[in-house]
Design a protein around this nucleic acid. Structure first.
Lengths: 224, 224
DNA sequence: GCAGAATATGAGCGATCATTCGCTTTTGAT
DNA sequence: ATCAAAAGCGAATGATCGCTCATATTCTGC
């Protein structure tokens, strides 16, 4: 039953040359995804753009899906680098400050590679291995819940898990939609007011009242 | 330059027989999407499942994309029927009531055909004609802004457009993610608390304080 | 500088799929 | 009953794509 006489040990990369090949393939995949979309990204074309042969491609990736997974993982790696870095200092801060920072970070994360982000969000079918896209939010989710736990006395909400779900989902969706579907929000100015508003939304939910968050001109001046 | 000698006048449907053929095709497309996913939905297969020939398919649909668009439109038609129906009575109600109703309706909308909804959300690449999926939210968005305008005096927010964006996006994302990614929230019980919480989030944002929305046991009992 | 392992090559095979078109069947008006 | 238009048919075509494998090149330890 020994059935791998000529089949090379799929997916290893020890030497340096091969490592750069793998990099070139992932990079080419990302470029094609951005430039031509998911459908027009065939293994032959990826190999061609990467400057390698299809054969080499199949030595390291079992198929197109694996390439895309690699692209996604690389992109999320970059994003989480940003997030984790900026989030370290937040743990000690009060809710208002922390939430605003969190939202700002979410926006920043969406600025890492917007075009790629859009393609990954809009064109990649979430099937098979591609379901892993969701696992990304798990980390933010856990991170946020940890924060809530250590600041529980400042909060009004009880169910921290539910609260984390609500906050993280809202923040993510709002920044995401603002970046992708709302062209008039792309100016730095509008971006600031958006951050302020979302922070207000979340803080208000967590604390019950949002005094002191007055800012962005979106607040009404009640002259009574 | 007359270049349509044998090419049938693509996409007409006058008699009754043909109308049922079109229906069968759309229905078959929906079924295949749910059962096998977008990738495995080929025109040949759709025709086979529909009980018609590929030739007939191409008489009414220029390709697979058009079929999917038809499925999406049919699905959104059903959803908007539900939404519009339940939303009529809301216009006169105060923010607390109205928002809660709105959230409840959003949940209900996601229950129309959950499996199809999931496929449409996860597997359909938003390219070409398929971008139309977004136009769906435009209506809810406008509907919501209209409500805010007529209740402006109850609100704290100034920029109603921004507020609509924030509220609609949050509600949609929260219900969507709850239904699709959070299995433990599927019980009717959890669903109720979710509605309560989301309503609380939105109401708090719009009004500034959410007294009277106490309910779902997620609220903390402060015995001080 | 040599042997064998690692890596790279790319023409080609097979499968799938979208789409066409000459033909038959059904329909409805006369 | 007749006939033209409408609707339906499906084998056949051609294009694309994923993937393999026999072969060639490069690298690494000795």
């Amino acid at each position: 039953m020994a059935r791998k006489p000529l089949t090379k040990p799929r997916k290893v990369a020890s030497q340096e040359r091969s490592r750069s090949t793998v990099d070139a393939l992932v990079e080419a995949t990302a470029r094609i995804l951005v430039k031509d979309g998911f459908d027009r990204a065939s293994t032959n074309r990826i190999a061609e753009v990467a400057g390698v042969s299809v054969g080499s491609l199949y030595q390291y990736f079992p198929g197109k899906e694996a390439l895309v997974v690699a692209v996604i993982e690389r992109h999320q790696q970059e994003i989480m680098q940003t997030v984790r870095c900026e989030l370290a200092e937040v743990l000690a801060q009060p809710v208002e400050k922390a939430v605003r920072k969190l939202v700002a970070v979410a926006v920043k994360a969406h600025r890492v590679d917007p075009k790629l982000h859009r393609v990954l969000a809009e064109q990649i079918p979430r099937v098979g291995k591609l379901e892993k896209v969701e696992s990304f939010n798990r980390e933010n989710y856990t991170l946020f819940r940890t924060y809530l736990q250590s600041h529980q006395d400042e909060l009004r909400v009880n169910d921290l898990e539910l609260a984390s779900f609500i906050c993280v989902t809202s923040i993510e969706a709002l920044t995401h939609n603002a970046m992708l579907h709302n062209p008039k929000m792309l100016s730095d100015d509008s971006m600031e007011t958006l951050v302020e508003e979302v922070a207000c939304l979340v803080t208000g939910y967590l604390k019950g009242e949002q005094n002191g968050v007055q800012s962005a001109g979106s607040r009404r001046h009640r002259p009574d």
